[in-house]
Amino acid sequence: MDGRVLIIAGSDSGGGAGIQADIKTVTALGGYAATAITALTAQNTQGIFAVLPVAPHFIAEQARRVLSDIGADCIKIGMLHSAAAIETVADVLEELARGIPLLLDPVMIAKDGTPLLDQAALKTLKQRLLPQTHLITPNLPEAAALTGLNISHPEAMPEAANALLELGPTAVLLKGGHLPGHHLHDLLMTRDYKESFQTRRIPTPHTHGTGCTLASAIATGLAQKQLLPEAVRRAHAYVQEAIRTAPGHGQGQGPLNHTHTVSPFEV
Rank of each mutant, 00 (worst) to 15 (best):
T147S: 11
V5N: 12
N162G: 02
V172M: 00
G30E: 10
I37N: 09
L164T: 10
M157C: 12
T190N: 14
I243H: 10
K24V: 01
V172P: 00
H206I: 02
T124I: 14
L52Y: 11
A55Y: 09
P141H: 03
A120Q: 03
L29G: 05
R201Y: 05
A21D: 05
H153E: 13
L174D: 06
L222T: 05
V92W: 03
L93C: 11
S216L: 04
A219Q: 06
E155I: 04
Y193M: 13
L167K: 06
L117C: 14
M1K: 03
A156S: 14
A237Y: 15
R64H: 10
L96N: 04
K76T: 01
A36K: 07
G252F: 12
R191G: 15
Q224Y: 00
H183G: 00
Q253H: 15
I59H: 04
P106C: 07
Q198H: 11
D91C: 03
E266S: 12
P229F: 12
L129D: 06
L104V: 15
G10E: 12
I37V: 15
P56R: 11
V172W: 00
P158Y: 14
T199A: 07
H260C: 03
M79K: 09
Q240R: 12
L164S: 10
L227I: 07
H258V: 04
Q46G: 08
L167Q: 10
P180Q: 09
A156P: 07
A156Q: 14
